[in-house]
Amino acid sequence: MTANILEVKGLKKYFPFKKGLLGKAMEYVRAVDGVDFHIGYGETLGLVGESGCGKSTTGRTIMRLLEPTEGEIFFEGQNITRFNKKQLRQVYKHMQLIFQDPFASLNPRKAVGDAVDEVLLVHGMKDGVKRRERVEELFDMVGLRKEDMDKYPHEFSGGQRQRVVIARALAVNPKLLICDEPVSALDVSIQAQIINLLMELKERLKLSYLFISHDLRVVRHISDRVAVMYLGKIVEMAPAEDLFREPLHPYSKALLSVIPVLKPGQKRKKLVLEGEVPNPVNPPTGCRFSTRCKYATKQCSEIEPPIKLVGNRHFVACHLC
């Protein structure tokens, strides 16, 4: 038994797309292009990056909602990469996903209490009274009232719906929650409530999180370690405090420099990147960031930098660090 609840090795997800009228899939969108990381028991790993960098694809591929093109996924030491539907059903009892949009992830024609109840039923809880008690308990846990059980999703605000989604995910007693931008669709005031709820639940239920977000402040608040993704690859991974205090990779530096500063009068130099994110169909050779990096050398555009250990649990993929 390993000490890690989740290990991901060399994970790749390519989406084929057709070219020309008769063309077979000749080209691929390299959404996730070789990602390695692990999450320890009780740990929260934040995964950040701008939109389109492959964060969500990573989450969904780990959940096997998308078939990985290459690489391996280990959950509690088991290689689940090639698990069939039946085996996956067992894995899903311990690993759950919370979607970004709480409006889309609930069936509009099902009362929210029934939605949670159904999960208990398919996982073998036959006794209706017991189920009802458990649903009440779950609702209480996520801060919803008993009376809310008979309401339909459209009767709730976004924050409340996300609470329902969390309750539903918790119904199976998971150990690992993959949160795919769980608060991005919510108002800022509600975001804090949901984040606090997730942190509280983590303590109470000994959960581990993979927390995917583009919101750096949220990630900093909730994560133990943070991984920064750029164009399908992890460029830097470090304990949250270290990363936010002293980012090493030029991309991380630029990303963190644009976090708004809360103290009035204090100004920080923002590093605004030039150009656009390259097309993931034809990523640049060598370091993927070399086309936008002001420190880039000839070596950077030719040889892809391996990810290396540079400090206490601090990894970075850069020739110059």
């Binding site: 959940m63 909602l65 059903r89 899903y92 009892k93 759950q96 996903l97 979607f99 992830s105 609930l106 069936n107 159904e118 999960v119 398919v122 996982h123 989604v165 539903r168 995910a169 119904a171 199976v172």
Partner: peptide, 8 residues
Amino acid sequence: QAARILGM
């Protein structure tokens, strides 16, 4: 997709 990962 949620229903699928909830084991239905």
